[in-house]
Design a protein around this nucleic acid. Structure first.
Lengths: 217, 217
DNA sequence: TGCGGATGCCGATCTTGACGTCCATGGGTG
DNA sequence: CACCCATGGACGTCAAGATCGGCATCCGCA
């Protein structure tokens, strides 16, 4: 068996076949199963049959909770996007020290990528970017995180809005790409770089880059 | 008509319908048309009918030149990947001054993104990452560019290989993401930031970040 | 110069695979 | 014990990738 196609039906199927369940709880169950399948296979390769099977229900029940495949995907994507944006906001608000802000924000991206559920793949590696609604959510993550960072930069320096925003996007890109590569190369093996070490290293790069700009006051 | 679905059949169709053409030249024509369609619509939304129509031929001729849709996509992707990697290599080799190296490499990414053909979308916004061959090409760009940069970092500092590589990936991520957002926000309008200004700004951020590391000698 | 054959291309077709619905069934309740 | 309804296996449909019979074109020959 090749390692390129991780099968998605290895879940324990907590709510087994034919079990009556409250609608709210079942909806959560379906979302969880769908996340697993979308993360493992991507949007196009994921079949509604797979999702239903993994959730331990049949396809009609799935369609009783979600009008279609796209709606299901968007529901998951929106949650994943809100999650990282909120964490980024909290990280920036957690301190007034900009150096610590950089470290905290970097840690948010690394933790997000390291999360076992793998929801970050919906945001950073989506295969449905041709769909405008998906594109909007994906772009929203970088855009809103960058806005939060840009506000800090703009407050503390003399840089105009547009320039602050471009620098903020650069920092977000640095965090996002490096975190994904860290996961791919060192995330699973024990011989690689630890998450905290990697996050601190890249935080250092980011802080050295951003700290030198002229202060506002 | 909505603006969300840019039609792909607005090309001048240089080799019109039913025109005899040398095989090599026709192949180039097909690749060009395919690139336009894939860039505009993404892999999944792109139909072989669209590509054939844009090239001014019918579907059978398309299949006489390429065994299938995936092969066609991979041919384009490989060229696009080689292109940016080679440019990155040239940029780093163009000088011994690391500051100029950063600026040159950043310029490579911004120029690549600003290119009218839009081949960068195949590399940075592919919607076929579930395909291992595609994933390999896409990752190869970041990986090989990072290797080139990491070699410079490792030569000039005391950082171990793994750390140099992670910093290099961070710089590549910064360039890639910021360039794409620059294009989306300022690339078309005249009121935004100029390419050189944006590239220089982000180069400054990168250089401030990387210059401070302890020199080797 | 007119004609026959061969060549290669286009319109029409087939197939597959996955999304999105319908008839038997089984369990719960009055 | 009979009714009711949620469930699931089986199915229709459709889009898109991948191929086949007419036909126009070109060349060689009398």
């Amino acid at each position: 068996m090749t390692a390129g196609q991780p099968r998605a039906d290895a879940a324990p199927e907590v709510g087994g076949r034919g079990v009556r369940m409250p609608r709210r709880e079942r909806r959560e169950q379906l979302l969880e199963s769908a996340l697993g399948v979308f993360v493992a296979q991507g949007y196009h390769a994921a079949a509604m049959d797979d999702i239903a099977e993994r959730a331990g229900v049949s396809k009609p029940v799935l369609y009783q909770h979600f009008p279609g495949k796209l709606d299901l995907y968007l529901a998951l994507l929106e949650v994943a996007a809100d999650d990282v944006i909120a964490n980024c906001r909290d990280a920036l608000a957690s301190t007034q020290d900009n150096r610590l802000r950089v470290e905290a924000a970097m840690g948010v991206f690394y933790s997000y990528v390291a999360d076992a559920a793998g929801a970050f793949r919906l945001v950073f590696e989506s295969d449905l970017t041709s769909e405008p609604a998906v594109r909007a959510q994906v772009d929203r993550v970088t855009s809103e995180c960058a806005d939060l960072i840009a506000a800090v930069i703009h407050d503390d320096t003399d840089l105009p809005h547009a320039e602050s925003r471009l620098l903020a996007v650069s920092l977000v890109g640095m965090a996002q790409v490096s975190a994904r590569f860290w996961l791919a190369e060192h995330g699973d093996t024990e011989g690689g770089i630890d998450l905290e070490v990697a996050s601190a290293l890249v935080s250092g790069l980011a802080w050295r880059g951003i700290r030198g700009y002229p202060l506002h006051d």
